[in-house]
Design a protein around this nucleic acid. Structure first.
Ligand code: SF4
Ligand code: SF4
Lengths: 144, 144
DNA sequence: ATAATAAAAGATATTATTGTCTTTTATTAT
DNA sequence: ATAATAAAAGACAATAATATCTTTTATTAT
């Protein structure tokens, strides 16, 4: 479904969102541990997310990554689009060059609904929404 | 969603199913052209599908690949499970080590429904079903 | 000012996926 | 029997995804 990169990106932002004040920073090392992902790899991903203003970053002592209210309230779709592109939402399940209702692939009608509900899920749920589940201990970001 | 290998596998079987008699063989070259996929690659895939009895193969002149009634009537899920494994159906969207209702990932509840409808689509639709759409010119296997 | 800190940037390594080519084996028509 | 055909098998190549390491730059506490 998602690339590893994208999975880590989603989990990292959900993790960062635990600092609700929008000011307190959390470092890569801590993030990587908190989501059970390779440190240097998430560092790279966070760089990208920072460039694209999905998260904010601060260098130096007490630095790290943080998110503003506005950033937390973005739909998870934003991250997916940024990292994996719109393939999941707009390209053919069977890899046809373009999607079209006129000449669709055999799975078209069956798949349309699924594609719609994936879009819906990613659009209506914000990073904060998912973080709320974690804070309420109704969900986890890693397993032992 | 699916790997390229799996996409080709699905399209190849749908293409082979066009020979409805279950006897007439169609060669790799023709299949590859019919689904716009790299010839040697689909050859490899068909080898695997043949080993696992998803299709039948005949060597020598007039040889190639064919499918019996029983084979055509298998759900597309069989191919997906064979090629991509059960990851799509059974593993966590966010890559948690195991899926569990007790300690789910934050997207669990949202994703469960989608996973279910993917399974449903792949279970209830047979290769023949999709091929019928192609024969009826309601769907295509490639584009120009 | 200086040293410590932590991200940014760049380079490199590893692995998995995708794609191609060559040789071998089985089948069939002649 | 023989030659032609086509898949099976094995080896190889190219690319993309994932992961790691090193150097540089910005920030801050001292
Ligand atoms: S299913 Fe239809 S919409 Fe979906 S991908 Fe294939 S052609 Fe495109
Ligand atoms: S969502 Fe739930 S079921 Fe789906 S994957 Fe994550 S933990 Fe597993």
């Amino acid at each position: 479904m998602f690339s590893k990169t994208c999975e880590y990106a989603i989990k990292a932002t959900i993790f960062i969102a635990q600092q609700r004040d929008g000011i307190t920073c959390v470092g890569v090392k801590e993030i990587a541990k908190g989501i059970h992902a390779p440190e240097y790899f998430v560092a790279k991903i966070l760089q990208e997310l920072s460039r694209k203003k999905i998260v904010s970053s601060v260098k130096g002592p007490n630095g790290g990554f943080c998110m503003s209210e506005a950033q937390m309230n973005k739909p998870v779709l934003d991250i997916v689009l940024l990292i994996d592109g719109d393939g999941l939402l707009n390209s053919c399940v069977l890899g046809l060059e373009h999607c079209s209702n006129i000449n669709p692939c055999p799975m078209h009608h069956e798949y349309q609904k699924i594609k719609q509900s994936v879009r819906n899920m990613l659009e209506k749920n914000t990073i904060l929404d998912f973080n709320n589940l974690v804070l309420a201990k109704k969900a986890v970001l890693f397993m032992n």
